[in-house]
Write a protein that binds this DNA or RNA. Structure first.
Lengths: 204, 204
DNA sequence: TTCTAAAATTGAGTCAATTCTGTTTTTATG
DNA sequence: CATAAAAACAGAATTGACTCAATTTTAGAA
């Protein structure tokens, strides 16, 4: 039986995350004061810091949920990719990008990215690096899969290529969240244009 | 004649930057308190905020100097590139990377990058985006130059390719500054490995 | 049921960036 | 040279993230 203490703990975790997510959306990351999050979650300031090391870690928990959903959605594409290289890449990266603003606003992404480079050794910093790595690995897996079914040349270094594709997408995504007026279709088109060079180079 | 006011202004600018650069190096960005920078520069706290909107902008001024030096050094390579594509790229990107830790520590880079994504519309945020763009344009110029001398196929989209190469290098550089133990030669080798795929694809 | 150690909560206090409001210095004008 | 407007300066006050010592709650042994 899950003791009272464990249940209360889980409940408080949930309340803090929900309060923070709501306030981050409403007021932005900086605008959401810890005091307000505490009040809305009906805990004290001290308790929040008992659960999360700092404000960034709260945002980190939300980012992790979002990225894990995306990774999950990506698995289907890797298992069963479209029958040409360009479409396969576009489909997988498309899933990443289309999902990206589901729970997180651009401002929240900006903060999350900033924190992850600012404090790479904090719990969230490490988690974020891990998420990037998982996405890279998924792209690598797609390339390897395409090699298996002979859509990509066998002599291609799939590991290096996967990282190259991820890095380019990620950098484009960073620029995308930095500009509020940037739009998803434009971003996808730009990434496709760059990947076209690769697609031409690696097809059998 | 440059009035007294203008001269004092330039002098104070210089003193603030010098004090900040020294303290950032000694104590790190967070460790360098504004109060200490003000004391060392022999101005008041208020004056610092009269010259720079926030602490990040002071760091920004230092980063700009560094990147501008790098851009300058890069011009020579674009004007007179090595006679094969792989070496040409390696030489230009090598200059960027080897220069990168001249004035700035990894910790300063982390802070600078973080601020530029966190506040893309602040003076420094915009300047940083501009610097990234200048570097991208320089890589594009190199590709175009290589096309002129027939080392790169004419049908390659040099603009998209230049951006792709920059994005990949930049992302690798971000990961590099996030890990204190990462070394420059390893970074350069990883980038070369990725670019090899491209080099094979675009050569005549 | 009662008691005690461990775990968790609380919120007033600390610290440092940034803002704000008078004061001083510089410049331009008669 | 006197003076008023403009610009720059100073540092006390504000603000908000985070800490820590005191208090409360829970688990489980007697």
């Amino acid at each position: 039986m899950s003791g009272l203490r464990a249940r209360q703990k889980a409940d408080r975790h949930r309340r803090i995350i929900e309060a923070a997510a709501a306030l981050f959306r409403e007021a932005g990351y900086e605008g959401a004061k810890i005091e307000a999050i505490a009040a809305q979650a009906e805990v004290s300031i001290g308790t929040i810091y008992n659960y999360y090391q700092n404000k960034g870690d709260i945002l980190g928990a939300i980012v992790s949920m979002e990225v894990n959903e995306v990774l999950n959605a990506g698995r289907g594409v890797v298992a069963n990719p479209p029958a040409n290289v360009g479409d396969a890449l576009d489909t997988l990266l498309g899933i990443y990008i289309e999902h990206s603003l589901h729970y997180l606003s651009k401002e929240m992404w900006r903060q999350a990215m900033a924190i992850s480079t600012q404090m790479p050794d904090s719990p969230f910093g490490q988690a974020y690096t891990g998420l990037d790595r998982s996405l890279t690995d998924q792209i690598r897996a797609l390339i390897a899969r395409l090699q298996e079914i002979d859509l990509v040349r066998q002599d291609i270094d799939s590991s290096a290529l996967g990282e190259l594709i991820f890095n380019n997408m990620n950098m484009m995504f960073i620029e995308f969240v930095k500009r509020d007026e940037a739009r998803i279709p434009t971003l996808r088109a730009a990434i496709r244009r760059q990947n076209r060079i690769l697609v031409a180079a690696i097809g059998v």
